[in-house]
């Protein structure tokens, strides 16, 4: 529950800061006239709608992952809780996902300089490493299943599959978007503004998923146990 508390403090602060900048303190009944007061500095462009949509989607996905984490810690209190051994391949996977994120960052920087060739390579490297990450995750699942750590045998195992599974589904969704972007870039000789935005959105999403994965990995290997203890202290 503390996880949700932290998440909401973050979301609400962002929302309130944003609202404060939107003029919710004004008295519209006194104001008449055209374009009353856009607070945008002259010469700056509004962010593209897709970027705003992505930001909101990340809030929704963040809420989903926070709830899963909250459930993980709450369920983890039960005496039957027994974490499965963590397959070593996860360390390699973490490296792959980080590499994927770096590749997309490279693509983003190259897109700013309208360097098409570099964007193409970076996107392909990013997609490939992300794909290998997914294969690695499946490998980890297989390893656990071979060791007979089934989802039904302990809730901790079930959480392992659930968390990694939900994360992988989000990454697959991202890969679809990335594939479409890569396809468009591949056929382009010149980088348009829309393409540059697409690359940027992919990169943002990838960083988000890496961030989620790092927290999740910390939870799974037990580095976050201290956090659970703190929560329990706070609540009791």
């Amino acid at each position: 529950m503390s996880v949700m508390g932290l998440f909401f403090i973050f979301i609400f602060s962002v929302a309130i800061l944003w609202l404060a900048r939107q003029g919710v303190m004004e008295s519209p009944w006194l104001e008449e006239g055209e374009v009353a007061h856009y607070r945008r500095a002259a010469g700056t462009e509004p962010p593209p709608a897709t970027k705003v949509a992505l930001a909101i989607f990340l809030a929704v996905a963040g809420c989903l992952f926070s709830l899963l984490a909250a459930a993980f810690f709450m369920r983890g209190d039960a005496p039957d809780w027994q974490m499965p051994p963590i397959p070593g391949v996860l360390w390699f996977n973490t490296f792959l996902l980080a590499a994927s994120s770096v590749a997309l960052q490279v693509a983003l920087v190259a897109a700013r300089r309208f360097d098409v060739e570099r964007v193409k390579t970076a996107l392909l490297v990013g997609a490939a490493t992300a794909g290998f990450f997914l294969i690695g995750q499946m490998w980890a699942w297989r390893e656990l299943i071979e060791l007979k750590f089934f989802a039904s045998s302990n809730a901790a195992n079930a959480f392992f599959y659930l968390l990694t599974g939900v994360h992988a589904l989000h990454l697959i969704g991202g890969l679809v978007a990335l594939a479409r972007t890569t396809d468009k870039v591949r056929n382009a000789t010149r980088l348009t503004k829309e393409l540059a935005t697409s690359v940027k959105l992919c990169a943002i999403y990838w960083h988000f998923l890496l961030f989620v994965w790092l927290l999740m990995f910390a939870m799974l290997i037990g580095w976050a146990d201290g956090f659970g203890v703190i929560c329990r202290r706070l609540l009791s």
Partner: peptide, 20 residues
């Protein structure tokens, strides 16, 4: 829901501030 929120944030016509 994403659509409703983004439309309110992004597609307001000229002069339509949040407080209008």
């Amino acid at each position: 829901g994403l659509n409703y929120v983004v439309t309110v944030l992004q597609a307001r016509t000229r002069g339509m501030t949040l407080m209008r």
